[in-house]
């Protein structure tokens, strides 16, 4: 038996940097350093663990859609231990929304061949958290998402989803789309050996024509939502800061009372 896992990853602007919008109200990717979205490292980690715990022949492909620099995210995932990578890159993809992204990913996942897709719970820039569900809808396979625990055995994926009201145990037959949370287990650091080996691993590059997609279906023009304005939130006006000299709790209570909270 073989198990083909595709891990979808995103190259995002560093959240600790000064993130901005470009003139066309898309995310400015030029002025901030990018990196593999932290939440996608958990997806790579779970793919590696499934592989390590499996008797099957497991092949892990990491897939990203993004500009040239997004290759850095693939390289990181390869150095963690993934086998190969696919980079979907096309100038016409600029400004693609979540629905468009799921279309490109669905085409790429199908072209790569898959039994299991693993994604992170959300990107750290857009933070919508809907791409895994959209991908499952497009592929017509079960959605087993937001798992804090996942395992694969005999063609069945099982996991635990911790919701607001309850913790649920889920089960579905492969092929399926899974997403994992940051509670699924710390992601490993690439070893020196892993980093060296990653340099020799294959990275394929596909454009829209390779996926039989038209430019009108994606990008800013193909987006089904429009951002009309983006305004920087005014800095909060400087508050009152007091040093506790034994009366801090009392002073704070007075402030809360003045604001009618008590």
């Amino acid at each position: 038996m073989s198990l083909r896992i595709v891990v979808t990853v995103k190259y995002v602007p560093d959240a600790t940097g000064d993130r901005h919008f470009a003139d066309d109200l898309t995310v400015d990717r030029d002025d901030v350093d990018g990196l593999l979205s932290e939440l996608d490292e958990y997806a790579v980690e779970q793919a590696l663990q499934i592989s390590e715990n499996s008797d099957d022949d497991v092949e892990i492909t990491v897939l990203t859609v993004g500009p040239e620099d997004a290759r850095d995210a693939l390289r990181k995932a390869l150095s963690m231990g993934a086998d190969k990578a696919v980079h979907v890159e096309d100038d016409d993809l600029h400004g693609t929304d979540a629905l468009g992204t799921s279309l490109v990913l669905a085409k790429a996942v199908e072209k790569a061949g898959y039994d299991l897709v693993i994604s992170g719970m959300a990107s750290t820039d857009g933070t919508m958290g809907v791409v895994p569900a959209l991908l499952a809808e497009r592929l017509g396979v079960p959605q087993v998402t937001l798992l804090s625990e996942v395992s694969v055995e005999d063609g069945t994926v099982r996991g635990r989803r911790d919701g607001d009201a309850a913790s649920e145990r889920l089960e579905a037959s492969l092929p399926a789309v899974v997403s994992v949370t940051d509670q699924s287990g710390e992601a490993r650091y690439p070893s020196f050996k892993g980093i060296m080996a990653a340099k020799k691993k294959p990275v394929e590059s596909w454009d829209l024509s390779d996926l039989e997609l038209d430019a009108e279906e994606v990008g800013l023009a193909g987006a089904w939502t429009a951002v009309d304005s983006a305004t920087e939130r005014p800095a909060r006006t400087a508050g009152t800061i007091v040093k506790d000299e034994g009366e801090g709790g009392k002073q704070l209570a007075e402030y809360l009372a003045s604001q009618k909270f008590i």
Partner: peptide, 22 residues
């Protein structure tokens, strides 16, 4: 940088005192 009101102090002193006051 975000606060409307801040207390620089040990939370083990300030929080119980605040609770009593409330």
């Amino acid at each position: 940088e975000l606060v409307d009101y801040g207390v620089v102090g040990d939370l083990f002193d300030v929080v119980p005192a605040l609770t009593e006051e409330v």
